[in-house]
């Protein structure tokens, strides 16, 4: 799978075999992320938030972009992971890596159970049901004050150093590397997944579900599987938030978080993994900049930016890049 150079020459078969080879440009996000650590040392807390949100967006991309499961309730899994990691750190141990496993499990179990029920439907009904699942989980967390702290949230979480070596410091150095490394492995996993036969089958389901039924593909099983995987990853993202901010509140289960992550993904471009990177970075940096320049009316500027992007760049930021590249090639010929 890892071929560093992707030649344009060669037979059609060769090109087909090589289409999944890792291109050098795919390393660019990692180079930038490492560079950002050295160039913007005072922005690391925001940096870790961006990294874990990218992870969350990748998880959504698997469900929404690749399998076509339109959801407004993805924060349910994010929040489940966050609460699981928070409770685990409070009551069991503050060891971070096992905490992430617990967070992923919590997201995954919720994803599997709710997926079994709601993925029987599609379209508007499905959107409503994803939202309903989110609201149920949110209200449960709100009501279960003895466990979750209700509207006050879970506080007093203290994390142990990673591998007993790297303490979570005030400046966010450890948190940044921690998020970056977790994101790297999730990215590798997501690439393998979408470029596997299973991933191709998902695209088939998205593009023509009737035909997939006709050729005998187990459509619903595929959907539940990818939904569960996606929920596991969302849970891990939530776990990262709980561990790095050492606080879990109801906002992790908020409808706003669900909506914003869809916006960020659409902003970058769906169904291409890298849309998650581009969209999250654009949205969160813009939001942070606007909020600091104009704390009272920043949401207006963010809204305006989104309207303009929806009007003029429908395929998201990467869609625009694609169009530009196509145009350049045309001109060269």
């Amino acid at each position: 799978m890892f071929r560093w150079f992707n030649s344009d020459k060669g037979s059609a078969v060769e090109r087909f075999v090589q289409r999944d080879a890792l291109k050098p440009i795919e390393l660019l996000p990692w180079i930038l992320a490492i560079a950002a650590y050295y160039v913007f040392p005072s922005y690391l807390p925001l940096g870790s938030q961006i990294l874990l949100t990218i992870l969350f967006a990748i998880s959504l991309d698997l469900a929404l972009g690749y399998a076509g499961i339109i959801t407004l309730g993805h924060a349910a899994f994010f929040g489940a992971g966050a609460y699981a990691a928070g409770l685990y750190a409070l009551h069991v141990t503050g060891e971070p890596l096992s905490g992430l496993v617990v967070a992923g499990l919590a997201g995954g179990i919720l994803g599997f159970l709710s997926g079994l029920v709601i993925l029987r439907t599609s379209g508007l009904t499905l959107i409503m049901l994803t939202l309903a699942v989110l609201l149920l989980v949110q209200e449960f967390a709100n009501r279960a004050r003895p466990i979750t702290g209700g509207a006050d949230g879970l506080s007093g979480i203290s994390m142990k150093p990673i591998f007993g070596q790297f303490r979570f410091d005030l400046f966010g150095h450890t948190a940044y590397w921690y998020c970056l490394i977790v994101l790297f492995f999730v990215w590798l996993f997501a690439l393998l997944l979408v470029r596997s036969p299973f991933g191709r089958a998902l695209t088939g389901v998205r593009e023509n579900v009737t035909r997939m039924h006709a050729i005998g593909a187990p459509v619903r099983r595929r959907l539940v599987t990818v939904y569960t995987i996606s929920a596991v990853l969302a849970g891990i993202a939530g776990g990262l938030l709980a561990q790095t901010s050492q606080f879990v509140g109801l906002a992790t289960l908020g409808f706003e978080r669900s909506g914003e992550i869809v916006i960020m993904l659409v902003l970058g471009g769906i169904g291409r993994i890298y849309g998650a990177f581009v969209g999250v970075v654009i949205f969160m940096i813009a939001q942070d900049t606007f909020a600091k320049a104009d704390p009272a009316f920043w949401s207006f500027w963010v809204g305006l930016m989104l309207v303009l992007i929806v009007l003029f760049a429908r395929g998201g930021a990467l869609g625009v890049v694609d169009q530009a590249l196509r145009w350049v090639r045309k001109v060269r010929r």
Binding site: Y43, G153, S155, L170, S245, F247, A251
Partner: peptide
């Protein structure tokens, strides 16, 4: 709180 905490840290 997680937003407040990040802002205070910054």
């Amino acid at each position: 709180p997680e937003v407040a905490k990040r802002l205070a840290t910054e």
